[in-house]
Design a protein around this nucleic acid. Structure first.
Length: 576
RNA sequence: UGGGCGGUAGACUAAUGGUAGGUCAAGUGCCUUUGGAGCACUUCGUCCAGGUUCGAAUCCUGGCCGCCCAGCCA
């Protein structure tokens, strides 16, 4: 057999990947369960179970990669299931956005499910538990139930309604369903143990009365199951073998099991892993909603938001997010991942895929005195030096160009290699130029730099072998197109925005400079055809993405991330 | 304070009683027509105290520290 056959190459690649990919305790569990045939010959089945009460964020991406990724790895299937048991908070807008985001991340579900699909079955099972003496209708108010629940250190007390007859419970529960009682007047409770040290086992509420319109079942129901009563059974109905959720549900696992055991149904198992925390980022749906409602950001898809739609608009890619999620793994420790880790995977992805272009964000005019007036020419530029297949393009050059204000210093600091009076630099892919003198405005600001060029250095090399210390980017003034550039920075100034001083609001941690809009940018003409969501690297500056607002003739680019900036480090060190 | 779950370099994560390894960050050098990218190298770690063992990050005991739970939210 030919060892370099495509099949073998592929196999070797898979092997290499699995050898380098760190394992995690969940993957180990899958391997073990498959080996011991815990579920017989049944295939691995997982689910991603969002509540449609908000937009998905990068934390959900981790769960999605685990749910879909692991199932995929073991030849299994994943359902997308909306956990829609609370009609007061859930909306169709969210179910739509969630589907868009999951698909954008690159995953396709086996079945689209809703907990509300199971409302009839869930009700039937509740009746079954009532008949078995395992559930009862309680007339206590919410407040009284809380008081009876006890505390962390003291056991609870039984409700006076706990010992109602099966007949009375059945009658009352049926009348709850029919809508005979107002909201909050009665609940159905599981009869477990009011003295349990696990508060979730102190006769948890199964159903509450809610005369609310449900986004899918309309007004069919006025009683709705609680999360605990719905989730495990939904898993069970879908034959979910591995039900991953975050750590805060660990205490719910006994209850998850209790319902399944009482009902004698398919024994799905819950596995908890740590939620993602990212530095300088808030991943609380409630707080994200607040940012949107109080208009501290421009909607859920504001490029500063950690939502999937936000970071997509910012210019992040699904590939990078998946790589990031793979790299951070999953465990049971709560920590906080450096945002640099995410940024690293994003730069890595964009660097190899994305075309380069020249754009001057803060322009400074340069006049090349010895370049003939009225002359124009095109220079050839590689679209992506990392990818020879990306081809080349022609970029216009002329006597007057723009360079970045940062790329000229009248008095250069130590180790500054760019343009300054008397110094020679390379204009990328064009010519060597030497700064001769400057033109200043009344306030003394340099508004123009006059240079000479070396005609023999066309393309960027001098035949005499002369070296220059740096290469700067440029845009021909005559051919430049204009664009709005939105420079995004971290939304919060604090590494942990949820860590607050006494009486402090998380809003106080907002970065006042998280968005800077530049209206004066000069771009090379090839960028005129950029369409929304097109990615570029503006050479020496950063990765940019045409915004959803961008239109031909009125271009808008978002800065996804700046390039790593060694000079900024040198400067910072010198200043410090 | 009752219960649950955890503690491996600055961050994340492996090592499943047998060489503490990887990624990010940080630093140094090389290279460079992006001060980008790449390459090489370096710094830095098993919460503490006992115990079991030829051998402990791993098992046991006791501490310490962190997170979660008292919604008719999920």
């Amino acid at each position: 057999m030919n060892s370099s056959s495509p099949e073998n190459k592929e196999a070797a690649k898979v092997q290499a990947e699995s050898a380098t990919r760190p394992s995690n305790f969940i993957r180990e569990m899958f391997i073990e369960d498959l080996k011991t045939k815990k579920y017989g010959d049944a295939v691995v089945q997982t689910r991603f179970p969002p509540e449609p009460n908000g937009y998905l964020h990068i934390g959900h991406a981790k769960a999605i990669c685990l749910d879909f990724g692991l199932a995929d790895e073991f030849g299994g299937k994943t359902n997308l299931r909306f956990d829609d048991t609370n009609p007061e908070k859930e909306e169709q807008e969210y179910v739509d956005s969630i589907q868009t985001d999951v698909r954008w991340l690159g995953f396709e579900w086996e079945r689209l499910c809703y907990a509300s699909d199971y409302f009839d079955q869930l009700f039937e099972w509740a009746v079954q538990l009532v008949k078995a003496g395992k559930a009862y209708v309680d007339d206590l108010t919410a407040d009284e139930i809380r008081q009876h629940r006890g505390t962390l250190t003291e056991p609870g007390k039984n409700s006076p309604y706990r010992e109602r007859s099966v007949e009375e419970n059945l009658d009352l529960f049926e009348r709850m369903r029919k809508g005979e009682f107002p909201d909050g007047t009665r609940v159905l409770r599981a009869k477990i143990d009011m003295a349990s040290p696990n508060l979730n086992m102190r006769d948890p509420v199964m159903y509450r009365i809610l005369h609310a319109e449900h986004h899918r079942t309309g007004d069919k129901w006025c009683i709705y199951p609680m999360y605990d009563y719905a989730h495990g059974q939904s898993d069970s109905l879908e034959k979910v073998t591995h039900s991953m959720c975050t750590l805060e549900f660990t205490d719910h696992q006994p209850l998850y099991k209790w319902y399944i055991e009482q009902l004698g149904i398919f024994p799905s198992q819950q596995i908890e892993f740590d939620r993602l925390n990212l530095t300088y980022t808030l991943l609380s749906k409630r707080k994200l909603l607040q940012l949107v409602q109080e208009k501290r950001v421009n909607g859920w898809d504001d490029p500063r938001m950690p939502t999937i739609c936000g970071i997509r608009r910012r210019g992040f890619t699904a590939e990078a997010i998946r790589n990031f999620c793979g790299a951070i793994g999953a465990s049971r420790t709560n920590g906080s991942t450096d945002i640099e880790m995410l940024e690293h995977f994003q730069r890595e992805d964009l660097n190899k895929r994305v075309p380069r272009a020249m754009a001057v964000l803060r322009p400074l005019k340069v006049v090349i005195e010895n370049y003939p007036e009225g002359q124009e020419e095109f220079v050839e530029v590689a679209n992506n030096p990392e990818d020879a297949g990306a081809g080349v393009r022609q970029v216009p050059f002329s006597r007057e160009i723009y360079i970045e204000q940062d790329d000229f210093r009248e008095v250069p600091p130590p180790k500054y290699y760019r343009l300054s009076p008397g110094k020679e630099v390379r204009l990328r892919n064009a010519y060597f130029i030497t700064a001769k003198n400057v033109v200043k405005d009344a306030a003394g600001n340099v508004v123009e730099v006059h240079c000479t060029y070396d005609p023999a250095s066309r393309g960027g090399n001098s035949p005499d072998g002369r070296k220059v210390k740096s290469t700067i980017h440029w845009v021909s003034a005559k051919h430049a197109i204009e664009a709005e550039i939105r420079i995004y920075d971290k939304l919060f100034t604090k590494a942990d925005p949820s860590q607050l001083e006494e009486g402090e609001d998380f809003m106080s941690g907002l970065n006042p400079n998280s968005l800077e809009t530049l209206m004066d940018a000069k771009l090379e003409p090839s960028l005129a055809s950029a369409k929304a969501e097109d990615h570029y690297q503006f050479e020496r500056v950063g990765y940019f993405c045409a915004d959803l607002d961008s239109k031909p003739g009125k271009l808008v680019f978002n800065r996804t991330l700046p390039l790593k900036d060694t000079w900024a480090k040198i400067e910072k060190k010198a200043g410090a």
